[in-house]
Simulated assay, not measured.
Amino acid sequence: METGGTSTFILLQWIYITLLSVIKAQEVKVWPEVTGYLGHDVTLHCEFIQGPQVANITQVQWALLQPNGKENVIIVYNTILGPSIHKPYVEEKVGIEGLSLIIKDVNMTDAGLYRCSISAFPSGAFEGTTKLIVKEQMPLSVGVIAAVVIIVMLMLLIIAATTYLIFIKRCDSSVNLIHTDTNGPVTDVARPSVIKTEQDVVYSEVTTKPSRGETASSRYKHSKTEDITYSEVIFLRQQQ
Results as ranks from 00 to 15, higher is better:
residue 217 S to W: 10
residue 23 I to K: 06
residue 30 V to K: 03
residue 166 I to A: 14
residue 24 K to M: 12
residue 111 A to Q: 05
residue 25 A to I: 01
residue 8 T to S: 08
residue 240 Q to Y: 09
residue 206 V to F: 15
residue 42 V to A: 09
residue 86 H to S: 02
residue 180 T to Q: 08
residue 56 N to R: 13
residue 135 K to F: 05
residue 124 G to M: 09
residue 156 L to D: 04
residue 228 I to F: 12
residue 71 E to S: 06
residue 189 V to N: 02
residue 61 Q to Y: 00
residue 62 W to I: 04
residue 131 K to I: 05
residue 19 L to N: 07
residue 62 W to T: 00
residue 205 E to H: 12
residue 204 S to E: 15
residue 150 I to S: 09
residue 94 V to E: 08
residue 209 K to H: 05
residue 201 V to W: 02
residue 153 M to V: 15
residue 237 R to E: 12
residue 233 V to Q: 13
residue 78 N to L: 03
residue 4 G to K: 14
residue 237 R to L: 13
residue 138 M to F: 05
residue 225 T to P: 01
residue 31 W to H: 12
residue 54 V to Y: 12
residue 129 T to G: 00
residue 60 V to F: 02
residue 4 G to N: 12
residue 240 Q to W: 10
residue 197 T to K: 07
residue 12 L to N: 10
residue 122 P to G: 01
residue 86 H to A: 02
residue 75 I to W: 08
residue 204 S to V: 09
residue 173 S to R: 15
residue 12 L to W: 11
residue 100 S to D: 11
residue 173 S to K: 15
residue 70 K to L: 10
residue 232 E to M: 14
residue 214 E to P: 02
residue 54 V to D: 07
residue 177 L to G: 05
residue 137 Q to N: 06
residue 73 V to T: 04
residue 63 A to P: 01
residue 141 S to N: 09
residue 217 S to L: 14
residue 135 K to Y: 11
residue 76 V to T: 14
residue 38 L to Y: 06
residue 133 I to E: 02
residue 168 I to L: 07
residue 171 C to F: 13
residue 112 G to V: 01
residue 3 T to Q: 12
residue 62 W to N: 00
residue 131 K to G: 00
residue 22 V to F: 09
residue 223 S to I: 03
residue 12 L to K: 10
residue 213 G to T: 01
residue 5 G to H: 14
residue 155 M to C: 04
residue 75 I to M: 13
residue 184 G to T: 08
residue 129 T to Y: 02
residue 120 A to C: 08
residue 26 Q to V: 01
residue 164 Y to L: 06
residue 177 L to H: 07
residue 62 W to F: 13
residue 43 T to C: 11
residue 65 L to N: 05
residue 159 I to L: 15
residue 58 T to F: 01
residue 138 M to Q: 10
residue 200 D to L: 05
residue 65 L to V: 10
residue 38 L to D: 04
residue 17 I to L: 15
residue 117 S to L: 13
residue 58 T to D: 02
residue 224 K to W: 14
residue 235 F to P: 02
residue 70 K to Y: 03
residue 201 V to A: 06
residue 55 A to V: 03
residue 86 H to L: 07
residue 100 S to I: 06
residue 158 I to D: 06
residue 170 R to N: 13
residue 181 D to G: 05
residue 28 V to C: 07
residue 36 G to N: 05
residue 43 T to E: 13
residue 120 A to K: 06
residue 108 M to P: 02
residue 39 G to T: 08
residue 64 L to A: 10
residue 67 P to R: 03
residue 157 L to R: 03
residue 76 V to L: 07
residue 149 V to F: 11
residue 144 V to H: 08
residue 22 V to E: 12
residue 62 W to M: 00
residue 113 L to C: 01
residue 183 N to S: 04
residue 218 S to C: 05
residue 137 Q to S: 03
residue 56 N to G: 04
residue 115 R to S: 03
residue 53 Q to N: 01
residue 123 S to T: 14
